[in-house]
């Protein structure tokens, strides 16, 4: 038996290739470590001269009891971020939950519903129709939604090329240069927060208006909300509105069981909202 094993050519082959691969692996690993080490130890602030991303931990708050469903957030977001002006591409949206008398499940619709498109006149303008004005409504509310910029984002985990990533300040960003358009992230997101740009062949998502927050502005959806249903701020800053929002309210997150650790905190939503 022993002799047989030693003379087994397949075993020899496997062991030889194994060693060769291990050798290459060491070289590869070593050089990538080297690559990582050569990145300068960053004394200057990154990503811009006025903004150091290690000093911030952004979070988002939504008070659903204040939302009036005017959709100015969707309108402004599309303009600010140059999002395709149709019903299926959006970075933020608002859902309407309506419970009719005798029904247990909520009826849910958003701006992409055909009746709402008809009410707004086109897919490039946003408005809720008034279809429930004569119905017997037992409970109804609006829920603004947006990318949750999760602490452990599934979309980042599934990206095969490192095109989407979690920045040091908590935002989940996407690098269009590296995106290969496989759409794994669109599938992986439990919140449906991502969309695919067919023309460019890349996925896209909310960045919390990264070009604004790095200049000291608020994301545009927060800025234009006429009822202040949306708040945004830095959890590292004890006097920020988001700190006040999270500390002084019973907040909840969407789909906590998904394990993504969402960073959008809600007030006033029903258990059916997910």
């Amino acid at each position: 038996m022993k002799n047989d094993r030693k003379k087994n050519p397949r075993r020899e082959f496997l062991s030889a290739t194994g060693k060769a691969l291990a050798g290459l692996g060491v070289i590869a690993g070593g050089s990538s470590l080297l690559g990582a080490a050569t990145g300068d130890a960053a004394t200057e602030s990154f990503p811009t001269a006025d903004y150091d991303w290690t000093k911030h931990r952004w979070a988002y708050g939504i008070d659903a009891t204040k939302c009036i469903g005017c959709l100015r957030c969707v309108e402004a977001c599309k303009a600010e971020n140059d999002v395709v002006r149709d019903a299926t591409h959006f970075r933020t949206w608002v859902e309407r939950y309506v419970y009719l008398e005798g029904e247990e499940k909520a009826r849910v619709d958003s701006h992409s519903d055909p009746k709402n498109i008809a009410a707004s006149g086109s897919e490039a303008t946003y408005r809720f129709d008034n279809r429930y004005q004569d119905a017997k409504v037992t409970k109804a509310f609006f829920v603004p939604k947006i990318c949750n910029h999760c602490s452990h984002p599934a979309c980042v985990q599934v990206c095969p090329v490192g095109a989407t990533f979690k920045a040091e300040d908590g935002t989940v960003l996407i690098d269009h240069d590296y995106c290969i358009g496989c759409r794994y992230c669109v599938q992986a997101c439990p919140y449906g927060a991502r969309y695919f740009i067919e023309e460019e062949g890349v996925s896209d998502k909310c960045t919390w208006c990264y070009h604004r927050i790095t200049k000291g502005l608020q994301p545009v959806c927060v800025d234009v909300c006429p009822t202040r249903a949306r708040v945004f701020g830095d959890l590292n800053d004890d006097s920020s509105t988001i700190r006040e929002f999270v500390d002084n309210n019973p907040v909840q997150v969407l789909k906590p069981e998904s394990g993504n650790g969402p960073m959008c905190f809600y007030i006033g939503i029903d258990k059916d909202v997910s």
Partner: peptide, 26 residues
């Protein structure tokens, strides 16, 4: 070259994303 700088992504993408000009001025 900036790929492994902060993690498994292209670090240069971050300043690119931060560069846009705001449309809504407040």
């Amino acid at each position: 070259p900036s790929y492994y700088k902060y993690g498994y992504y292209r670090a240069d993408a971050v300043p690119e994303l931060a560069a846009g000009a705001p449309l809504y001025q407040g």
